[in-house]
Design a protein around this nucleic acid. Structure first.
Lengths: 237, 237
DNA sequence: AGTGGACTATTGGCTAGGCCACTGATCCAT
DNA sequence: ATGGATCAGTGGCCTAGCCAATAGTCCACT
C-alpha cells in the first residue's frame, strides 16, 4: 500500500442516491415557488417526467419526504404539503447549525452539570489522572496554536467516565456528534481555547476536592460560556 | 357535501401504505432475531420474496428506514444495521444491570430538573392547560384508589413538552421505558401517589409562576422522593 | 513475495410499462 | 333534494430487466 498521503485525499466521494437528489430538488422547488401548507405537488407521472426520473424513484423521494414530515401522499388525491417546510423559509439559511445550537446547550447543561457533581462524588484516582491528562493535552495543543478540539472532547469524556453512570455516559455518546459540532464552533473563536481550558481547570479542581456543588457550578459556568460564544456567532452572520 | 355529523365517527380508518407495514415487519424481525449494529439484512431480492412484496416496495421501506437512521443501504454490498434500533442503545446498556434504579434517578434528576427550569421560562397557556389536565387526571385517579401511573406519566410528559426542546424531549423518550418501570414501583408504595401529586402541584405552581429555579428545586425534590422509595424498595429485596 | 489487473458472483440502483384502487366531481334518476 | 352511477385523474404496487458497485479470487508479471 502507498506509505501515506492517503490521509487527506479529496473525499471518499459522497455517493448520493438518486432519490435524495430528487427530494432535494423538490424541497428547493417548493421553496422557490413559495408553496405553502395545503398546496399540491404535480401528479407523480408529470413530476417524474419533469425531473427526468422514473416514477419509482420519485416515489422513493416522496417516501423520504413523507417520513420527514414534509408532505403527505394521499391515494387517489395527490401529494400535499404539510407545514414542516414552509414555516421556516426565513430560518432556512441558519437551519443546520444555529437552529439546534440552543437545544444542544440545554441538554449539555442538564447532563454535564449532573455528571460533574457525580464525578466529584465518585471519581477514583484513575479518573483524576485521566482528567489531568486531558488538561495537559489541551495545554499542549493551545501552545501549538491548535484549537484543542480533541483535547476538549477528551476532557469531557474523562469527566463523564468519572461520574460512573453507564446511563449518563451512553446518553452523552448519543448526542456526541451534535456536541462536537458546537464544540468546534465554540473553540474557533479567538481566545476561546484558553478560556475553555481555564474552565476545565476549575471543574477539575472541584472534582478533585470532592465538592459536588462546586463542580456543578463550574460546569454550568463552562457550558454557559460556550453558549455565549454560540450566540455571538449567530449575531455575526 | 354531507352537512355534518361525521364529526365524531370512529376513525377515518387508518390507511397504511404497504411500505410502512414492510418497514414495521423488518424492524420487528430485527428485534426478534436480536440483530445488532453491523449485521446485514438479507439481499433485497430474497427479502422481498420472503415478505411477499415487490422489490420496489421493499425499496421504499428501506428508504424510510434509512431516513429514520435504522439502516444504511450500500450499493453492491448490502443493507447493514446502524445502532438506531435496538430500543435505543441507552436502554440496552442499562437493562444488563440489576441495580439500574440509581442510574435512572441520576439521569432523571439531570434532565427533568433542567426541563422544569426551561418549562418555567417557556411555557405557553396551552402548556399550562395540559399540565393542569394531568393534575386533574391524577387527582381523579387517586380518588378512585388508582395508583395514577398513567397520570404521572402524563404530567411529566406535559412538563417536558412545555420545555420546548426537541432534543431533551427526544432524550426523555429514549429512556421512557426505564422511567416507567421506576414510576410503577414508586407509586406502588402506600401513600406515594398522594405524595407524588403534591410534588407535581409544587412543580406546576413554579412553572406557572415563571420561576425557573423554584421549578428546578421542586422537580429535584420530587425526583429525590422517588429515589427514596426506590432505595427503600431495594432494601426490601 | 508482492503487486496489480482481470474476472466473476452478488447485491443494490433505476427504468419502463402496466394494472388496480381510491378520490372527487358530475350527472342522472328518483 | 337525495342517492346512486359513472368517469377522469391520481397514487399504489407489481413484473421484468438492465446497469453499476462491491468484494473476493485467481493469475500474470515484477
Amino acid at each position: 500500500m502507498t506509505p501515506k498521503a492517503s490521509a487527506e485525499l479529496p473525499t471518499p466521494l459522497a455517493r448520493t442516491r438518486l432519490y435524495e437528489q430528487v427530494a432535494e430538488q423538490i424541497t428547493t422547488w417548493i421553496r422557490q415557488n413559495g408553496l405553502k401548507t395545503g398546496d399540491r405537488l404535480p401528479p407523480e407521472r408529470e413530476l417524474a417526467a419533469r425531473l427526468g426520473v422514473s416514477r419509482a424513484t420519485l416515489s422513493q423521494a416522496l417516501v423520504a419526504l413523507e417520513v420527514v414530515g414534509v408532505v403527505v401522499v394521499r391515494h387517489g388525491d395527490g401529494t400535499v404539503l404539510t407545514g414542516k417546510l414552509s414555516e421556516s423559509r426565513i430560518v432556512e439559511a441558519i437551519r443546520a447549525h444555529a437552529d439546534r445550537m440552543p437545544e444542544i446547550i440545554d441538554i449539555r447543561d442538564a447532563l454535564e452539570t449532573k455528571i460533574a457533581a457525580l464525578a466529584a462524588q465518585r471519581r477514583t484516582e484513575d479518573d483524576l489522572r485521566a482528567i489531568d491528562a486531558a488538561l495537559d493535552t489541551m495545554e499542549a495543543a493551545i501552545t501549538h496554536g491548535d484549537r484543542g478540539v480533541d483535547a476538549d472532547e477528551q476532557f469531557h469524556a474523562a469527566v463523564t467516565a468519572a461520574a460512573h453512570s453507564d446511563l449518563l455516559a451512553q446518553t452523552m455518546r448519543e448526542i456526541a456528534s451534535l456536541v462536537r459540532e458546537s464544540r468546534i464552533e465554540s473553540l474557533s473563536q479567538p481566545g476561546r481555547p484558553r478560556n475553555s481550558l481555564n474552565g476545565h481547570r476549575a471543574i477539575a479542581e472541584a472534582i478533585r476536592a470532592g465538592k459536588p456543588e462546586a463542580a456543578a457550578d463550574a460546569m454550568h459556568a463552562h457550558v454557559e460560556m460556550v453558549s455565549d460564544v454560540a450566540l455571538l456567532r449567530d449575531e455575526e452572520q
